[in-house]
């Protein structure tokens, strides 16, 4: 939950209760006779309040099972969960007079520390991970849909390459000669050698970039050749790029060249210089699929980070509440004697 101005009232309420608790503990009339701690009325009251707050915190997970029940707005519950949970730690400390105690209370302290730390860690994550998701994954999807979408992207990648290159596994004979490695007037590009070797070159020895980006020369309409059937020529670099980089990347393998948007862009620029104009839409499509897959994986990573702390927080909270009740029962029995 984002800590914003709406928490102000809760924060003041918590601070006020914390101060009241501390004052009551400090001026505890029984402190001089039996010492500070859980045995005094004040200590017992603080301990009971801490247990009540913990029960309230645990009740949130039950409330989430019936989110439509009219038990108060979920955000009020969440604010209470955060602030009363924090307050309970302070009250427990006062109740125990800042001492470790016996084995059970030591275990309780360990659990409280772990639960609190995991909660604080989770709260910190919630301050920035949603924003990271918002800005770095513009094409965010439902978590349940991610696998299905990645599978679709993989299939679509195959279709695109077949459409533009004819076949994925076999090389397409290119009628064009070898390209220069650097286009005149263009910055040098780091072209991976093994797919650069298959790249076509401009028909009259001009810049590869010119072939890639310039519009086709104007010709009289009567002389326009009939539209050829099948994939356009010159798709071999795209095919090699797909087989060596994009396909493994889309299948989930790590490919540093595509894992970061910056490196992917430079690779794309290199690829573009080696392919003629009819292949450019194919490059657009493959790169866009890679980008989508990158975003989805990033979303998955961020969501794992966002929820990972709950793996620790929830079971430990339940363990804490059970042990706290056990502690309370034993302590009350002891007091009765």
């Amino acid at each position: 939950m984002l800590l914003d101005r709406k928490h102000k009232a809760w924060a003041w309420f918590t601070v006020a209760l914390a101060v009241i608790g501390a004052l009551a503990w400090w001026f505890d009339p029984e402190a001089s006779t039996i010492g500070r701690g859980g045995s005094t009325i004040v200590g017992l009251t603080l301990g009971s309040l801490a247990l009540l707050f913990m029960l309230f915190c645990v009740a949130l997970s039950l409330k989430r099972r019936v989110p439509h029940w009219r038990l108060g707005r979920a955000q009020a519950w969440m604010r209470g969960h955060i602030w009363l949970g924090l307050l309970s730690v302070w009250f427990v400390a006062l109740h125990g007079a800042f001492e470790r105690g016996g084995p059970l209370t030591t275990l309780l302290w360990v659990l409280i520390a772990l639960v609190t730390l995991s909660a604080v860690f989770g709260l910190i994550l919630q301050q920035f991970v949603p924003r990271l998701l918002l800005h770095s994954v513009p094409g965010e999807t439902l978590a349940q849909q991610m696998d299905r979408e990645l599978e679709w992207i993989r299939k679509r990648g195959e279709e695109v390459v077949i459409e533009f290159c004819g076949s994925i596994e076999t090389a397409q004979p290119s009628p064009m000669p070898e390209p220069p490695t650097k286009a005149p007037g263009m910055p040098p590009v780091s072209t991976p050698a093994h797919f650069a070797a298959a790249a076509p070159a401009p028909a009259q020895g001009g810049a590869a970039a010119a072939v890639a980006t310039a519009p086709p020369p104007a010709s009289p309409p009567a002389a326009a050749p009939p539209k050829p059937k099948g994939p356009p020529v010159g798709g071999e670099p795209l095919r090699r790029f797909y087989v060596d980089y994009a396909r493994p990347f889309l299948a989930g393998e790590y490919r540093p060249q595509l894992a970061s948007p910056g490196r992917a862009q430079s690779l794309e620029a290199a690829l573009r210089t080696m392919c003629p104009a009819p292949i450019q839409p194919g490059i657009d499509a493959v790169m866009s699929l890679c980008d989508r897959a990158r975003q989805l994986r990033r979303q998955r990573r961020l969501m794992r980070i966002l929820f990972a702390w709950l793996i620790l927080h929830i079971p430990l909270s339940w363990a804490l509440i059970v042990l706290a009740i056990v502690h309370a029962v034993f302590a009350l029995r002891f007091l009765q004697r």
Binding site: M1, L2, R64, V66, P67, H68, A74, Q126, V129, P130, R131, L133, L134, A143, M303, L306
Partner: peptide, 18 residues
């Protein structure tokens, strides 16, 4: 609000259960 939303899906769950 995607800056606040933790993608917990409680909204859709509540709709379903309501």
């Amino acid at each position: 609000n995607l800056e606040k939303c933790t993608r917990c899906d409680q909204c859709a769950q509540a709709c379903m259960k309501a």
